[in-house]
């Protein structure tokens, strides 16, 4: 039997991975491998940076130069990596707790600066690795380990957050949308600037089970049934509320803006000074 067509992109000596049965993170990684193939970027130039948590383990399974950093700091690490080595294509791959809660400030400012990194944010509505606590995206009313009577916090609309902070490419898919996700990731890989892709993913062990929402397969059916592809939707209108029975997916923002440390103006200015000096 031949090996899996994605094996050369994986650290196969570390498989099977640690994610639970029915978890979607592995499927997003599958799409990411497809995206790398589709994008045509050089294998050697790819660097993957993760933070902490279940999604933070992605870096450890991809056969690329990969960095598993501290909680919340994947984006600043990636910023330094990308600036110091502009030949790299740097992808940050982490979860919503890592990127938006503890690392939220870095997300805002990297988007604002338009740092040339691509961010894949797995949103599974909870903190998986630590045992299912409240996340910035946990829906109102959801039971988590730290909101045993149901969350009363308004969840964060991640695509709106990224877009309003200045990201030049913003998209959302679910784990069910594997083909679309692969194409979107490929597009982000070849674009310059700060791109943000939210991927909704089932957490069967904690979020789904605690809230009587079934298992991974059930959630995938939910994603399939209630997702509406609506490209160019204003991210403000793309909030997620389970009671709406509607998940807006697609590419919401595509725009061009000067990339951090790409600006021809600043380079020219410095060069002029250099000549004078």
């Amino acid at each position: 039997m031949n090996s899996h067509p994605s094996d050369s992109y994986l650290r196969t000596d570390r498989l099977p991975h640690l994610w639970c049965p029915g978890c979607g993170i592995g499927a997003t990684m599958n799409s990411f491998v497809e995206a790398v193939k589709l994008s045509g970027i050089s294998r050697k130039s790819l660097a993957v940076v993760s933070g902490i948590g279940c999604s933070g383990r992605v870096a450890g399974y991809l056969k690329a130069d990969s960095f598993h950093t501290t909680h919340g700091r994947a984006i600043p690490f990636a910023t330094g990596l990308a600036l110091a080595n502009p030949g790299l294509r740097v992808a940050v791959y982490s979860g919503e707790g890592d990127l938006v809660a503890i690392g939220g400030n870095h997300l805002l400012h990297a988007a604002r600066r338009n740092v040339n990194i691509m961010v894949v944010c797995i949103n599974n509505f909870t903190y998986g690795m630590t045992g299912g606590q409240l996340a910035p995206t946990t829906p109102i009313g959801s039971i988590t380990a730290t909101t045993p009577y149901g969350s009363t916090e308004m969840p964060c609309n991640l695509v709106n957050l990224a877009a309003s902070a200045g990201a030049v490419f913003v998209a959302r898919w679910t784990v069910f949308h594997v083909r679309q996700l692969a194409c979107t990731m490929a597009e982000a890989l070849v674009r310059r600037g700060f791109s943000f892709i939210e991927v909704l993913s089932p957490c069967p062990t904690l979020h789904l089970q605690r809230n009587n929402l079934g298992h991974g397969e059930t959630e995938m059916r939910y994603f399939k049934e209630y997702s509406r592809v609506a490209n160019n939707t204003s991210p403000v209108e793309a909030g997620l509320d389970r009671r709406d029975r509607k998940i807006i997916v697609g590419t919401f923002v595509k725009r061009e803006r000067a990339v951090f440390f790409d600006s021809p103006d600043s380079v020219t200015l410095v060069r002029k000074k250099k000549v004078k000096a």
Binding site: L10, N30, V178
Partner: peptide
């Protein structure tokens, strides 16, 4: 190959 693309565990593929 939807099975292959959906599989979180890289455990199924089509030849």
């Amino acid at each position: 190959a939807l099975c292959q693309k959906l599989c979180p565990d890289f455990a199924i593929f089509i030849e």
